[in-house]
Each structure stands twice: as C-alpha cells, then as structure tokens.
C-alpha cells in the first residue's frame, strides 16, 4: 500500500512538473506560474502522515531543481518544499480540514516556499534580483496557487487518503 502511494505521489509530482513548465508558461503572468508541485506536497501533508509528506516535499523539490529548464543552484527548491511540507503538516489532522483550512494552508505554504527560495537566492547571490521584483513574484505566485487550489487539492487529497492507511487509524 505504501509503495502504491509512493508511486501515485511521484507520478503526481512528475505530472505537476511537466504541466507547470510546458502548459502554464502560455498562461503565465510576467512569467510567474502556479507551483503545482507545491500543491501536490501540501495535499499530501494535509492527508497522510507527516514523514511521508516531508520526504515527498524533498523529492518534489529535488525534481524541480534538476528537471531541464532549471539552472539555479540545486537543493534550493528541495529546502523550500521540505519546510513548506513541515508547515503544512502542522495543521491539525484530527479533524477533516475545512475548505478554508486548505486554502489557508496553501497560501501559507506557497508564501513560505517562494520566500525561502528567494531568500536562499539572495544568500547565495545566485541571480541578483531586486526586492520589489521578489515581492511581486512571491505575491503573484501565492495568488496563482490559491486560485488553483479548488481544482487541484480535492482530487489529490482524495487520492492520498484512499491510498494510505490514515495515520489516525491506530
């Protein structure tokens, strides 16, 4: 069962990445696209146990770091998505998260992940970008992620909760 869940999660991440780099640039606003990989990670963090979500966050980040158009220092998205997964997993799970909880978690995770990525760029001096430009990127990315939440999160959460033994069953 766990293996099946891993396969489903990895498939979702890869699909999200391909859609993110191949489809969404046509719809992008100033080149900013929704971070679908992040949405997959948040969906996992909200439904299944935290260790799985954390490792999935790391893996998804690593794929984002290494997949073709990427040319930044590898490991930056891995760091950002691991921390985003950790934050999202802190949301209470003893009750089913309401729609508002989900949207709020996505917004917080998106803000945290994009900011951490941007800050790591400033620290590493990877590409020099103005603070105003970074702020624009963070905010527009957040709006994009929240906009796509109703379409992406419910099916993914259903998938993950069906495939996994809930952490709460014990």
């Amino acid at each position: 069962m766990t293996q099946l869940r891993w396969l489903a999660a990895l498939g979702a991440v890869l699909l999200a990445l391909v859609v993110q780099v191949s489809l969404f640039p046509h719809l992008a606003w100033h080149g900013i696209v929704p971070n679908l990989c992040l949405l997959v990670v948040v969906a996992a963090a909200l439904t299944v146990e935290a260790p799985f979500a954390l490792v999935l966050g790391f893996t998804a980040g690593l794929v984002l770091d290494l997949a073709p158009p990427a040319d930044h220092v590898a490991g930056r998205w891995a760091l950002a998505l691991t921390i985003a997964a950790f934050l999202a997993a802190r949301v209470r799970q003893d009750v089913r998260p309401s729609a508002l909880d989900v949207v709020g978690t996505v917004a917080a995770a998106s803000f945290a992940a994009t900011s951490i990525f941007a800050l790591s760029g400033i620290l590493l001096d990877d590409p020099a970008m103005s603070v105003a430009g970074l702020l624009e990127v963070v905010l527009v990315a957040l709006v994009w992620d929240v906009l796509l939440t109703p379409f992406v999160l419910p099916p993914l959460m259903k998938l993950f909760s069906r495939l996994g033994p809930q952490w709460a069953t014990t």
Binding site: V18, Q20, V21, S22, F24, P25, A28, H30, G31, I32, V33, N35, L64, P68, P69, A70, D71, H72, W77, T114, F117, A118, G121, D126, P127, M129, V137, A141
Partner: peptide, 15 residues
C-alpha cells in the same frame, strides 16, 4: 520551445 522555467525559480531558461 517546449518548456519555460518559472519566474519563481529566478532563472530565465527554456527547454
């Protein structure tokens, strides 16, 4: 061009 890096990744690269 088949893919474009997101602006979030801060590098302007395409595949």
């Amino acid at each position: 061009v088949v893919a474009m890096g997101p602006r979030q990744s801060q590098s302007l690269t395409v595949t």
